[in-house]
C-alpha cells in the first residue's frame, strides 16, 4: 500500500530496533533517529518540539488504553460504547502526535516505562466507574483548554500542533461534556453514588497539579490554564453538590514526575499488557 499520512502507516521493520533505553525525548526521538526505519522522516519534529509531541501523545495513548480496559466491563452497554469511543478519539490523537516525532508503533510498543512522558493522572487504574469519571473530568477539562489554546497557532512553537488541536478540541469538548453529565448524575444522585464520586475526585486530586507543569517545546505554558481549569472544575462540582477536594496539588507528597519519566507502580503492569503482543510478535499484522 502506498498510503502515507500524518497518522502514519505501520511499516515493516527489523525486530531488533528497540528504542534506546536512555533516550532523551526529542533529541534522540526513537524512529527519527533510527536509520533504515523506512519511513520518510523529513517532516518530523526534532528537539524540544518532538519531546512535546511525545508528552501529549503519551497522555492520549495511555488514557486511551486505560479507557479501553472498560470494554465489556462498564456498568451499562451505552457506557461501554461511550468509553470505547472516547478511547478511539484519544488513540487517533496519540497516533498523530507520536507520528510527528517518530514511528508511532516503535514509540508506543518498544519504549520502556522510563521513556514515557505522560502525566501520572492518565496512568492511574480505572477504579470504579465514578473514579474513571473523575479522571475524565480532570483530564478532559484540561485537554480542552490546552487544545483550544494550541489551535490558535499564534505562537510559532505551537504551530506544528495547531492542525491536530483544532480537530481534537471539538472531540475533547464532547468528552468533557460526557464527564460533566456523569459527574452531575453521580454527585446529585444517591448517597452511594455521591460518596463514590467524591471519593474518586479526592483520590485523584493530588495528580492534578502535574497538568500545569511546563512542557518544553509546546509554545504554550500549561500553568496559564490553571485558574480557568480550577474555576470550571469548581463550577461543575458545585452543580453536582460535590466538594472541591482539599489537600495539596503540588508539594513533596503530590504526584508530578511523569513528564520526567517517573511513573507510579500500576503503570508498569499496564505497559506490560499493552506492549506484550507487539513485543512477542514483532511486525505482526492482520
Amino acid at each position: 500500500m502506498t498510503t502515507t499520512s500524518e497518522t502514519g502507516t505501520p511499516e515493516t521493520r527489523n525486530s531488533g530496533t528497540a528504542t534506546p533505553g536512555t533516550a532523551t525525548p526529542g533529541s534522540a526521538a526513537p524512529g527519527s533517529a533510527t536509520p533504515g526505519s523506512g519511513t520518510a522522516g523529513d517532516d518530523r519534529l526534532t528537539g524540544a518540539a518532538a519531546a512535546a509531541a511525545i508528552a501529549l501523545g503519551d497522555d492520549a495513548l495511555v488514557l486511551s488504553h486505560r479507557l479501553g480496559e472498560w470494554a465489556g466491563h462498564a456498568p451499562v452497554l451505552e457506557e461501554d460504547v461511550a468509553l470505547a469511543n472516547i478511547a478511539l478519539d484519544l488513540l487517533g490523537q496519540a497516533r498523530t502526535l507520536l507520528s510527528l516525532a517518530g514511528d508511532e508503533d516503535e514509540l508506543a510498543y518498544l519504549r520502556e516505562e522510563r521513556d514515557f512522558r505522560n502525566i501520572q493522572l492518565v496512568e492511574q487504574p480505572n477504579g470504579d466507574f465514578a473514579h474513571t469519571i473523575a479522571r475524565q473530568l480532570y483530564f478532559s477539562t484540561w485537554q480542552e483548554l490546552l487544545h483550544d489554546r494550541l489551535a490558535r497557532g499564534d505562537v510559532p512553537e505551537s504551530a506544528p500542533f495547531a492542525p491536530l488541536a483544532a480537530k481534537a478540541v471539538k472531540e475533547v469538548a464532547y468528552h468533557r461534556d460526557h464527564a460533566e453529565q456523569w459527574t452531575l448524575r453521580l454527585g446529585d444522585g444517591t448517597a452511594e453514588s455521591r460518596e463514590r464520586m467524591q471519593r474518586g475526585l479526592d483520590a485523584l486530586w493530588r495528580f492534578t497539579g502535574e497538568l500545569f507543569q511546563p512542557v518544553d517545546g509546546l509554545g504554550v505554558d500549561p500553568s496559564s490554564l490553571e485558574a480557568d481549569w480550577l474555576a470550571r472544575i469548581a463550577a461543575v462540582l458545585d452543580r453536582a453538590t460535590l466538594s472541591v477536594p482539599e489537600g495539596p496539588r503540588r508539594n513533596g507528597w503530590t504526584a508530578g514526575a511523569g513528564r520526567q519519566g517517573l511513573h507510579t507502580e500500576p503503570f508498569g503492569r499496564m505497559l506490560a499488557e499493552m506492549q506484550h503482543l507487539h513485543r512477542s510478535h514483532p511486525g505482526a499484522s492482520w
Binding site: T4, T96, P163, A166, K170
Partner: peptide
Amino acid sequence: PEVTVRTVLSPPW
C-alpha cells in the same frame, strides 16, 4: 499506476 493518499487535518472536517 501510482496513487498516494495523504491524510490532512487542516482545516478540520
